[in-house]
Amino acid sequence: MKIYQTHRLFQKEIGKVFRFVIILLFAILVALPFFWMISSSLKKPLEIFEVPIVWLPAKPQWSNYTEAWVQAPFSKYMFNSIFVSTSIIIGQFFTVILAAYAFARLTFPGKNLLFLSVLSLMMVRLEVRIIPVYLMVSNFGWIDSYYGLIIPMLTSPFGIFLVRQAFMQIPQDLLDAVKIDGGSHLTIIRHVMIPLSVPTIITFMVFGFISHYNSYFYPLIVTHSDRFRTIPIGLSRFKMASETGGVPWHYLMAASAIALIPSVIVFLFSQKYFVRGVASTGIKG
């Protein structure tokens, strides 16, 4: 009996080690490209093309970062990206929470139809509406402006869907208590709904920030000057900046590394809510 138990225990330990090794392999596959990015961003141009490959540069070229940064107005792109994404999520915070509250807690004629039309936009993505949206944005005179980048994005169907779910779970008693005190809907939203749905709201806002910061398709189409271009568009200009002989990979990797810093920072600070929020809600930007 005792031998059997030790055997079981041994098996269990082996299983644990085995699982750990597999996960470690996965982790290497995920991390290796990032390691490669950083390592290459510190190489001299010649080390980039060397075969067999150079794992670590002989002497890290930190100046690649400062040089890459001035190849294009990256500070401006970075500002635009952060400004636009932040404005969008602040705007979405208001539109989404007000609408989610109405859809979750109030009854009114046409509610289901209206909610369905919001939901349908989760499938009918911007990509397939782009021609009319482009023409509309240009009719408003918003091409190549912050208006054009921000205003059409100021609400999020998925956000409404998600926050509505959270709002629906809040007990009616709490709402009634506020009503008895003569509180308005805005009081209820402010003092009951929002405080009790913080993880969901943070998840949706963080995801909103990241997906708008990363967005390429829409800003590509509605901007045409460096005053309004965002980071992904800025990076893509390295595509053609290679006439001096080959792709300037060391610059490209350095600029890429800087470009992903804001997403990573936002992610790290919100990871506690975020990964849990995704697991429980399955959010999609």
């Binding site: 240009s138 045409h224 000057s225 200009r237 595509k239 053609m240």
Partner: peptide, 24 residues
Amino acid sequence: LHVHYQGSYYDLQQKFMASIAAKN
């Protein structure tokens, strides 16, 4: 004068056509 780089000639022509469509 303000100059704006638009990428390759292909990219530039696509952008230019889009700007004509936008009447701008």
